[in-house]
Nucleic acid binder design. Structure first.
Lengths: 189, 189
DNA sequence: GTCTATACGAAGATAGAC
DNA sequence: GTCTATCTTCGTATAGAC
C-alpha cells in the first residue's frame, strides 16, 4: 500500500520534530527511523521537506485536538487537565526529557515562508477554541472561558519547555497544580 | 579593543537565536549582522559554534535575570508582571512576531551534548527562584510562592510561542490578565 | 587579530534506469 | 514505486600568511 509508507513517514517526522526540532528532521533521519525507502521521498512528497514537515505538523495538531476533545467529552475540565499533565509527565519520563511538543517545534521553524508555522498557529487556535467551548458553560463570562483556555495551553506548553531544560518534572507538576486550583475557583457549577 | 568584537558577536548571536533558533544561527549570519571579521571567529571562540551559542545563552539568561530583579525591586509583583508582558508585547509588535525568547530557543537545541541546553536550564531555574523569593513574603506558604513563580514563567514563555505562531497579541494579553487576577487573589498583603 | 584558501561533511533536490 | 548516482549549496572547521 502506497499510503502506508507515506503515513509512516509523516508520523516519524512528527516524532523526530518533537525530539530534535524541524531543522534536524532530515530525510536521512526519517528514512532511517521509519524504514521507508529513499527513492520514494519525492514520489510521496513532491514538495520536498517543506511538505513533509507541514503535513507532520497538521497530523500532530489534529491528533492532539482529538485527544483534547476526547478528554473533555468524558471528563470535567479539571479532570481533563489532570489527564493531560499525566500524559506529558509520562512522556517526559519515558523519553528522559528528550521529547517535547512537535507543534511548538513547528512554530519555531526558521524557514521562510513556512507552512509548518502556519499549521502550528492553526493547531494552537483550534486547541484554544475547543477548550474555551468546554469551559464556557462553567464560567460567568465567555471571555473568561477564552482567557482560561489560553492560559492552560500556554502554561502547559511552557512548562514542558522548562521541564525539558531543567530535566525535572517539577515545573509541569507545579503548573498542573496551580491550574487545577485556579479552575476549581473559577468554575461556578 | 578585542572584547568589543567578541561581545558584539555574543549579543548578535542571541538576537539571531531569538528570531531563528540555534541551528539557523550560523557564523555567516552572525558575521553579517555584527560586522565582525570572519578571520577572528576561532580566535575569540576556540570552541567554535557550540561555545558562541552557549555564551549567548548565558548572556541572555543573565540579562533577563537582571531585568526580573530590577522590576521586582522597584515594583510589587503584579506591576512587575504587567511590565514584563508590556515588554514582550512591544517586542512582538516591533518584530512582526519574528522574535521570541533566545533561552527557549537554546533549550530546544538538538546538538548533543549541548552546553546551551544546560545554560537554558540554569537560566530558567534562576528566574523561577528570583520570582519565588519575591513572592514569598506575600503568600502563606513558600511552596505556593514557588508554584506561582513557575506558572508565571511557564505561561509567559508559552504565550509568546502561541502569539508568534498565531501572529496575534491576544494569547499574551489573555495570559497577562489571568496572571494578574490570580496574583491579586493569592497575595495576602 | 584578521585575512584567504581550503578541506570536509551533511542535507536537499534532480535525473534517469528499472 | 523504488533505486542509484550526482549536483549544489551551505556550514563548520583548519591551515598558514600577514
Amino acid at each position: 500500500m502506497e499510503s502506508d509508507t507515506r503515513q509512516r513517514m509523516i508520523e516519524t517526522a512528527a516524532v523526530v520534530m518533537r525530539e530534535r526540532g524541524v531543522e534536524a528532521t532530515s530525510f536521512s533521519e526519517v528514512i532511517a527511523r521509519s524504514g521507508a525507502p529513499r527513492g520514494s521521498i519525492y514520489h510521496h512528497f513532491p514538495g520536498g521537506k517543506a511538505q513533509l514537515i507541514e503535513e507532520a505538523t497538521r497530523y500532530a495538531g489534529e491528533y492532539t485536538a482529538s485527544s483534547i476533545a476526547n478528554a473533555l467529552w468524558q471528563d470535567d475540565p479539571i479532570a481533563a487537565i489532570r489527564a493531560a499533565s499525566a500524559t506529558w509527565l509520562k512522556l517526559l519520563r519515558k523519553s528522559d526529557f528528550g521529547a517535547g511538543c512537535p507543534v511548538v517545534a513547528a512554530s519555531l521553524d526558521p524557514t521562510q515562508p513556512s507552512g509548518a508555522r502556519e499549521a502550528a498557529g492553526e493547531a494552537f487556535s483550534r486547541w484554544q477554541r475547543a477548550l474555551a467551548e468546554a469551559l464556557e458553560p462553567h464560567v460567568l463570562e465567555p471571555e473568561r472561558a477564552r482567557s482560561l483556555a489560553t492560559l492552560i495551553i500556554s502554561s502547559i506548553e511552557g512548562a514542558v519547555v522548562l521541564s525539558r531544560a531543567t530535566r525535572s518534572l517539577t515545573p509541569l507538576e507545579r503548573v498542573a497544580a496551580e491550574l487545577e486550583g485556579l479552575l476549581a475557583g473559577a468554575i461556578t457549577r
